[in-house]
Amino acid sequence: MGVESFLQYMRDLYGKVNSSVLNTNSSGFNSQQLAFMRQFQKDLKVEVASRLALRDLKTVVFDIETTGFFPEKGDQIISIGAVKVIGCEIQEERFYSLVHIKEEISEEITELTGISNDHLVDAPNLSEVMVKFFEFIKDDTLVAHHSSHEKNFMQSACWKQFKTPFKHRIVDTSFLFKIVAPNHSIVTLEEWCKYSEISIENRHHALGDAKLTAILWTQYLHKAQEMGCNTLQDIYERFAKR
């Protein structure tokens, strides 16, 4: 989906945008479009989700693959994968895209992710992928496993591509784990899957890891509900009392 489709979605969502904002040119975003995207991020009602019943909470569980761990040092996103979830039910809607970068990928990253330089030659640029990703998630709550990695790269990408902060809430799966299984010091996604008897497939593939995280999220969200947590706010408050 292109820039115009994303802006049309935002116009439908907010019911206000000057028609000239939809006038794109071959160079991509104009100043009005960038300003509108910044307003879109600013207007996100990130706190509303905290009070929604967990059974009705709309989330997008996502994962990214990158060339390293430090966007501030030039490491880049090379793929994004995501799965939609409502309450404890995984939906059929999926998102996946490779991301074109100019730099060469190291052999170590290729071995880990299966992504080579050849795979990224014809992939869309990050700005295009981000637009499609925003359209996919809309104003749903994001979920990630050890989310600091995803958050750092999404913040960097939003600022570099659109000069706007990344405003979406990202809920870290560790909040659930520390409430439901507080006595376990498990860290990695793979270890949590093994502990939870979840079959591990497509590890270190953005969509594959998003699917595994979604299964974990729904399992532990259900357990949190059984413990009396009805909203995200309940989960945060219980975590704070630990």
Rank of each mutant, 00 (worst) to 15 (best):
F36H: 06
R169A: 14
K241E: 14
M1H: 12
Q91S: 08
F29A: 02
V131Q: 02
E237D: 04
K138Y: 12
H205I: 05
T231C: 02
D63V: 11
E111R: 12
N18G: 11
S97C: 09
L52M: 13
I86E: 14
V48K: 10
L13P: 07
Q8D: 14
F40T: 04
S26Y: 01
E197S: 10
F153R: 11
H149A: 13
H149V: 15
A82K: 07
H184M: 09
A214P: 02
E150C: 15
L52Q: 15
A35M: 03
T67V: 13
I200R: 03
K223H: 14
F166V: 02
N18T: 10
D118K: 00
T231Q: 02
A53I: 01
Y236P: 00
L7P: 01
N117H: 06
A157Q: 02
H146D: 12
N183D: 13
Q225A: 13
N152R: 05
F29Y: 06
L22G: 01
G15Q: 07
Q33K: 00
L13G: 09
T164F: 01
L34G: 03
F177N: 07
R238G: 06
Y220E: 01
I200D: 06
D118W: 09
Q39G: 00
L232P: 04
N23V: 13
N125S: 14
